[in-house]
């Protein structure tokens, strides 16, 4: 009876083949598709590049031009959505887009170039303007001027302050 049973089952089941690529398919809520950076929101902090397991997001700093480049390469992305989880500005998110095939590798890159601010002490570009503004919102007013300095100059200043304070205390 077995093999006839299978034949009846196939007939009773009807068509199971979907019409794709001639008709779109439905995707469930929470599908992890193409990651997209919103260039207006991105602050260039680099948290996504730090957590990305395959290093599909890479950060390059061009000190001469004063730009920080965030380069998202879809051709290496594993669609794990860790970047979405850690982004403090909610700038990167995974869309439902899965039709990502491209005829050249260049088409798989999304590049965001952000302007960097020069240090008030040494004049070296050290962080993006947007990231500094983002931090400034969270800092108390009296600490904000510290943001004008790069980490090196800031450390020097801090040690100077402490020396002065210690001397006064004595």
């Amino acid at each position: 009876m077995g093999r006839f049973g299978l034949i009846f089952k196939s007939i009773a089941k009807g068509r199971v083949t979907e019409k794709y690529p001639f008709a779109p398919i439905e995707l469930p809520e929470g599908f992890r598709g193409k990651p997209e950076i919103d260039p207006e929101k991105c602050i260039g902090c680099g948290a996504c590049a730090t957590v990305c397991p395959p290093s599909a997001i890479q950060i390059h700093v061009d000190e001469e031009q004063g730009y920080k480049t965030i380069d998202l390469f879809l051709g290496r992305c594993i669609f794990c959505a860790r970047c979405e989880e850690v982004c403090p500005a909610e700038a990167i998110r995974l869309t439902k887009e899965f039709e990502l095939a491209a005829a050249s590798e260049e088409d798989l890159h999304q590049v965001v170039k952000l302007k960097m601010a020069k240090c008030a002490g040494c004049g070296r570009p050290f962080d993006t303007v947007r990231h500094l503004q983002f931090i400034a919102e969270k800092l108390p007013e009296e600490q904000k001027p510290m943001l004008a300095l790069c980490p090196d100059c800031r450390a020097k200043l801090a040690s100077k302050i402490l020396t002065v304070a210690a001397r006064r205390h004595r």
């Binding site: 730009y67 990502l100 095939a101 491209a102 798989l108 601010a117 008030a120 004049g123 962080d127």
Partner: peptide, 26 residues
């Protein structure tokens, strides 16, 4: 048609030194 295209965004901004952003802390 190919949907996926490369995107390059370059931020346009005049500010490029931190001293004008925040009061200097020298």
């Amino acid at each position: 048609e190919q949907k996926q295209k490369s995107e390059i965004f370059v931020e346009e901004s005049d500010i490029d030194d931190a001293a004008t952003l925040f009061k200097e802390a020298t």
